[in-house]
Simulated scan of single mutants.
Amino acid sequence: MSTPDDRVLRGDVAPGWEPVRDVFAAIMSRPDERGAGLHVIHRDRTVVDLYSGTDGEGPYSPDTRQVVFSASKGIAAACLAVLADRGDLDFDAPVARYWPEFGRHGKSEITVAQLLSHQAGLIAPSRRATLTDVLEGRPLADALADERARWPPGRPGYHAVTWGTLADELVRRITGDRLGEVLTELVCRPRDLAISIGTHLGPPPSPVHAATRVPLLVRLTTAVFARPGTPLWQALTVQGAITDPPDLWVRRPETLAGQLPAANAVTTARSLARLYAMLLPGAEAPLISDRTQSAAVRPRAVGRDRVLGLPSAFGCGFALPSRAWRLGSPTAFGHPGIGGALGLGDSRRRLALAFLPRTMPADALSDVRHRTLLDAVTTVIGP
């Protein structure tokens, strides 16, 4: 954990953004916090660039890279939006147009938008997959294509891990390359973004650690809703293929070497915020057209989530404001992660934010750090 000296804030804030700095400082003063980065862009201008604690070896810095767990889905969704903007992908087309085998067993009418908004009913294969199947991608994708949808489209059912497998195979069928490779070539390298799916090249990312204090109610709720056999357990573990706790699993070299667009993206806070800033309508250096952005963040699935048990909402890969995803504004889009990472954009307020902490929250669906930071932003720029 960080020492008192490590908790000194490093970085800058623009005049008027001191409330956000003060909240970040308060968060980092807590004894369990190890290190974190916070980057905020408002109207194409960086207004918050703050760091505190350590990256595990030295001070947490603008170059510190972390695995962001399910915040990876927002990164992958940006890549898919670029393919849509190029005309290579139609959100409203059947998945089977690009991936014929996916249409088996009554799935021929499931659209790309339904797949990306967690309506495909493929949270795990009916037969137990192996960890190798998950990490290699295509074996799991083949198994999912040969499944019947567990539920009809219409309500979300959070595909915690398999969302990335399905998106990866869709991209491979369209381009011949895996999603991580397309992300690098079309999105990150041309814009100098330090983002990747996995870390098959380069040093390992800064480790994330589980919360040391978990309230009794959270432990009891987890024991009930994530017990073996439940939809949440199946989605999180891919029917038991993943046995390690998340903070340990993502440190394994074989996990980091894989491409899991739902779970193992690696980024800096600055690069993640810059990515979302490029997705905003009217951006100075837009990643996609406003028309494609509107289609990507339009609500596609809203309702009580069949996996999470809470109301959730999704666009084409992006989480939208709901009880499950508290994003601070009705016009926000993005994705949090079980490790505490948060990346988002807000179309109306022209805001992009990334928060990367090294300490996981006790309750991933109710991270008080997200709420207090987003409330501080609202204090500065209004609701």
Rank of each mutant, 00 (worst) to 15 (best):
A210E: 12
P215T: 11
V218S: 09
V218E: 11
V218G: 01
R219D: 04
T221M: 12
T222C: 02
V224E: 00
F225Y: 14
F225A: 15
A226C: 15
R227S: 12
L232Y: 13
L232N: 09
W233F: 03
Q234G: 08
L236Y: 01
T237I: 00
T237A: 04
V238W: 02
Q239F: 12
G240D: 06
A241N: 15
P246K: 03
P246G: 05
P246L: 03
D247P: 02
V250D: 12
V250N: 15
V250W: 15
R251K: 15
R251P: 04
P253E: 11
P253M: 02
E254H: 14
E254V: 00
T255P: 00
L256F: 09
L256Y: 08
L256K: 09
A257M: 04
A257Q: 07
G258C: 07
G258T: 10
Q259F: 08
P261I: 03
V266G: 05
T267S: 12
T268N: 02
T268K: 03
A269F: 08
R270G: 13
S271E: 13
S271M: 08
L272N: 01
A273V: 10
A273P: 02
A273I: 01
Y276G: 06
Y276L: 11
Y276I: 09
M278L: 08
L279Y: 07
L279T: 10
L280E: 10
P281Q: 04
G282A: 02
A283E: 14
E284G: 13
E284R: 15
A285V: 11
Q293H: 12
Q293V: 05
S294F: 00
S294D: 11
V297M: 06
V297Y: 07
P299V: 11
R300T: 04
R300A: 06
G303L: 05
R304H: 02
D305F: 09
D305H: 09
V307Y: 05
L308N: 00
L308P: 00
G309L: 05
F314A: 08
F314T: 11
C316H: 03
F318K: 01
P321V: 07
S322V: 11
S322T: 14
R323Q: 14
